[in-house]
Design a protein around this nucleic acid. Structure first.
Lengths: 120, 120, 120, 120
DNA sequence: GTGGTCTAGACCACA
DNA sequence: GTGGTCTAGACCACT
């Protein structure tokens, strides 16, 4: 993983983890990597790893059992919401930037349809 | 303007200027801001401003008359190409990230259609 | 090295480096001096050294591995072309200046033959 | 005229004037431009113009009649020598740089013959 | 005023 | 250690 985006690394890692939850690579109730493992996996300082879990726990994405580990939240409905939120975020930015380039609303759908077509 | 992304400032400004050209806010043959003005406009050092124009000139987006100023390229066809390229770039990233979130091809178009609908 | 000519230092150094490539003193794939070394070697600022390599890379004379170094391009055929181009440039200027002095085409060859003879 | 070469402007102008003498554009005994005229012609300060004639006179290329003007030297043989000297200077530099590029003695004549051929 | 070059010194990410 | 970027401040030539 590369940390380009200028936003703090811990936010970038949180985003990656959220994606994994959304995609089901991290399933509800599943044990997440330990602080130390996370630090190694993402080439991050342990303090940063700790902060990542702290923030995610506060947001409800996971919970911690002291001495045992950190686990993916079992509130399944949450991940659907997260997926929607993240998708909307992407979508909003994308549409905004396309408008910024001078594309009208209809054109954007055309473009994307064309692109999907090409990929087939 | 804010400089969030990890890419170098000079590239971000180049991108902004390219957008302006694509959108017709900077018209072919038109005088662009002087180095010093650009530096102020984008809160950038004069050297960075100079580099921006130097790189854009090398890429064919503008040309320079010493002692006079920097001017938008008069090769009009170029800007259509640029618009297409920039749109494809945005599109590619967007689709990739949506796939990364677990959305299938068809779903993406639905989402975007829904979003456009909401905006009306 | 002295910087007499009116052309910018970075161009003069680029020319020197191109000569070294053409003459085989810098071989394809070989590591070139680091930015900092180049700066010392040619008594130039590090920024200027960086610019030299940046421009040479854009022209295809070398390539860069971040954190590792700058290397002579491995496109061997290129250096033959460069040699020809540089020779033609010298030749064109020389002939032009000799004509300017009033020498006719044939005379120039005589002169140069005489000179070569002297040197033996 | 452009003053690129980094050498002092007065030397560059002297060189131009010597060329004109060698080519017969300034003939022995002919009146040369006044200081003021020279200053205008070569976009040079009058002091510089004065220095140019002073140095040329010291070298024997011209002589001054007070109150009348500056005249091209009448020693005709001199210009043949000058022509030879300037040609040798050009030639020496040219051959040196070609050697520097890796060309052997014989090759240089070939090259120049080829070039003259092309021009026909 | 314009663009172009150069230096000095700093900080970053990569390895 | 490497290359890459950025700033600050200076000087030049051209107009």
């Amino acid at each position: 993983m590369e940390y380009n985006s200028g936003s703090p690394i811990y936010l970038q890692v949180i985003n990656e983890l959220k994606k994994k939850m959304v995609k089901g690579e991290l399933k509800p109730g599943e044990k997440m990597p330990s602080n130390r493992e996370l630090a190694v996996l993402y080439k991050v300082n342990q303090n940063t790893a700790a902060r990542i879990y702290r923030e995610m726990e506060m947001a409800g994405y996971c919970y911690t059992k002291r001495g045992i580990g950190t686990f993916v939240s079992e509130e399944e409905y949450m991940f659907d919401n997260v997926k929607k939120e993240m998708a909307e975020e992407l979508l909003k930015n994308f549409v905004h930037e396309m408008h910024d380039l001078g594309f009208q609303k209809g054109e954007i759908i055309e473009q994307i349809a064309d692109y999907e077509e090409e990929q087939k």
